[in-house]
């Protein structure tokens, strides 16, 4: 009986998020336009400037557009994770988050359900993006698209958990915009999404080290390898551990007796 309650609630939360996403057509379009501009404009422009050596998982020389595609997949999930947290800050400020928080289910379960919902939306966006990329001649092996799914689930959860953690510390929507600049851009630019690690080392060892330990880099590498039917164990473990750390911290942050609510008040 309790399990049925959990199951129904989770589907309720996931279903609502998908419905909202499909009804907000502008959100769907803007989520696609961002990576497509990077792919069609940025990557095309830099194709000549950046030479890429053969590195795993690639078995031959590749175009810059091919290299950047897993990074853009990661970018979709990163922005989606942050956007879904942004909606939580908005919901909390506007009140609709309260309906979720006063339902008779543990907070950790509600947060995980929100996370699954956000991840489901991001996966939908990724596959639409990859379908468009396919027609632009960026084609991975067919089986790679299947292997990609578990990687997307883990990366989506990890990036969503990071967003949740951030949202638990933010009291007002205005503050969140600042954090977006201080979190999204450093995470994205100091990663392997746009340039391989060895290339960064050539220009700065510090940048190379930062990118190496950046969890977003590992998420991108997990996606990159999965898309070519390969398993990157180090990236998998790193992403999994990052997810567990972010999620645990977010659960504490949303706990009324330990986190955000305690900071708001309480004796």
């Amino acid at each position: 009986m309790i399990l049925m309650h959990f199951w129904r609630a989770m589907w309720g939360i996931v279903g609502r998020e998908l419905l909202r996403f499909l009804k907000q057509k502008e959100r769907f379009v803007s989520a696609l336009v961002r990576p497509l501009i990077w792919l069609f404009v940025f990557a095309a422009g830099f194709r000549a400037a950046l030479g890429l050596a053969i590195t795993p998982p690639y078995e031959t020389y590749i175009l810059y557009e091919v290299y950047i595609t897993p990074g853009l997949v990661g970018m979709i999930q990163l922005f989606n994770g942050m956007q879904s947290s942004l909606s939580m800050v908005y919901d909390r400020e506007m009140g609709s988050m309260r309906i979720l928080m006063v339902c008779p289910l543990p907070r950790w379960f509600l947060l995980i359900s929100k996370l699954i919902a956000g991840t489901a939306v991001s996966i939908l966006q990724v596959y639409v993006f990859l379908s468009i990329a396919w027609f632009y001649d960026i084609q991975a092996p067919l089986l790679g698209y299947l292997w990609l799914l578990p990687a997307l689930i883990l990366c989506g959860l990890m990036l969503g958990a990071l967003g949740l953690l951030l949202s638990s510390f933010i009291k007002q929507l205005e503050n969140f915009a600042g954090v977006m600049n201080f979190v999204i851009f450093p995470l994205f630019f100091m990663s392997t999404a746009l340039y391989p690690l060895w290339k960064m080392k050539e220009s700065s060892t510090l940048l190379h080290d930062l990118a190496l330990y950046n969890p977003f880099s590992q998420a991108v590498e997990l996606i990159r390898f999965a898309l070519y039917g390969q398993f990157n164990q180090y990236a998998f473990i790193y992403t999994l551990v990052a997810f567990l750390v972010f999620m645990s911290a977010a659960i504490i942050g949303y706990n009324p007796s330990k986190g955000m609510m305690t900071r708001k008040g309480g004796k």
């Binding site: 309720g12 279903g15 609502r16 009804k23 907000q24 506007m94 339902c103 008779p104």
Partner: peptide
């Protein structure tokens, strides 16, 4: 605390699912 983008029915079904 209703979701403005959803219908009355969808809002109520969401609440029913949470319970």
């Amino acid at each position: 605390t209703l979701d403005m983008d959803l219908t009355v029915l969808q809002n109520l079904h969401y609440h029913a699912a949470l319970h």
